[in-house]
């Protein structure tokens, strides 16, 4: 559960745990929204390719880097533990 994250459709993200705010690109918003809604990280490339005009290889590469970045800046860290959602 990523219930510490409040993501609006404008791409504005509030991390209730840290109080930090972020802006995400449209695809970034799409991917994080999917994760918040419980999607398995494995399914993200497929979802992205279905909705956006991108080749699977590029989608996979970009998602990998995006998830690493989310994890790196700490937004995937859950509220009450150090457990992380990983790709």
């Amino acid at each position: 559960m990523l219930d510490h994250l409040a993501l609006s459709e404008s791409g504005f993200l509030f991390d209730a745990r840290t109080g930090l705010t972020y802006t995400l690109s449209r695809t970034g918003t799409f991917l994080l929204r999917s994760l918040i809604d419980g999607a398995d990280a494995e399914t993200l490339p497929e979802r992205l390719v279905a909705s956006y005009d991108v080749e699977p290889l590029v989608a996979r590469r970009d998602i990998e880097q995006f998830l690493f970045r989310l994890s790196d800046i700490g937004v995937l860290r859950k509220d009450d533990s150090d457990e992380e959602v990983t790709a």
Partner: peptide, 19 residues
């Protein structure tokens, strides 16, 4: 208007309360 986001994901409005 806000930039379009693919509609396959569920969109929620910004919550006013947090856990």
């Amino acid at each position: 208007p806000p930039a379009p986001v693919a509609t396959t994901a569920t969109l929620t409005t910004f919550p006013t309360e947090f856990p």
